[in-house]
């Protein structure tokens, strides 16, 4: 085997070794970010986000910290809509308690 070929093989082995060391986290390369660093940043971002959770408003209510006149009016309207639904639920209870079956032929 010529010496050039030997050099090429040796270079490939060194590159492979360095890559393995980088992949396993033993070596931190200056170019780009390691997967561990990315994970840490993501974790920090997530923790920051979780520290001040903003629950999404439900049933048509305004934002949980919106006490403006508009927010209060929106909340009152959302409650009134649910009250309509409760009225319908009550009617359904009455209908179910007063249910009459169709008279059968036999």
């Amino acid at each position: 085997m010529s010496s050039a070929v030997k050099w090429v093989i040796a270079l490939l082995v060194v590159v492979a070794a360095v890559w393995l060391l980088w992949y396993s986290g033993w070596v931190k390369l200056p170019l780009g970010q390691s997967t561990d660093q990315s994970a840490a940043i993501n974790q920090a971002a997530t923790s920051t986000a979780n520290a001040t959770p903003q629950a999404a408003p439900t049933n048509g209510m305004s934002a949980q910290n919106d006490a403006s006149d508009a927010g209060l009016a929106q909340d009152a309207a959302a409650i009134d809509a649910q009250a309509q639904g409760l009225s319908s639920d009550a009617s359904n209870i009455d209908a179910s308690l007063n249910d009459k079956p169709v008279t059968q032929a036999y």
Binding site: M61, Q64, L72, D75, I79, Q82
Partner: peptide
């Protein structure tokens, strides 16, 4: 629950 939330704002 909705009225409790509204109550806090009030």
């Amino acid at each position: 629950g909705m009225m409790t939330t509204l109550g806090a704002k009030l």
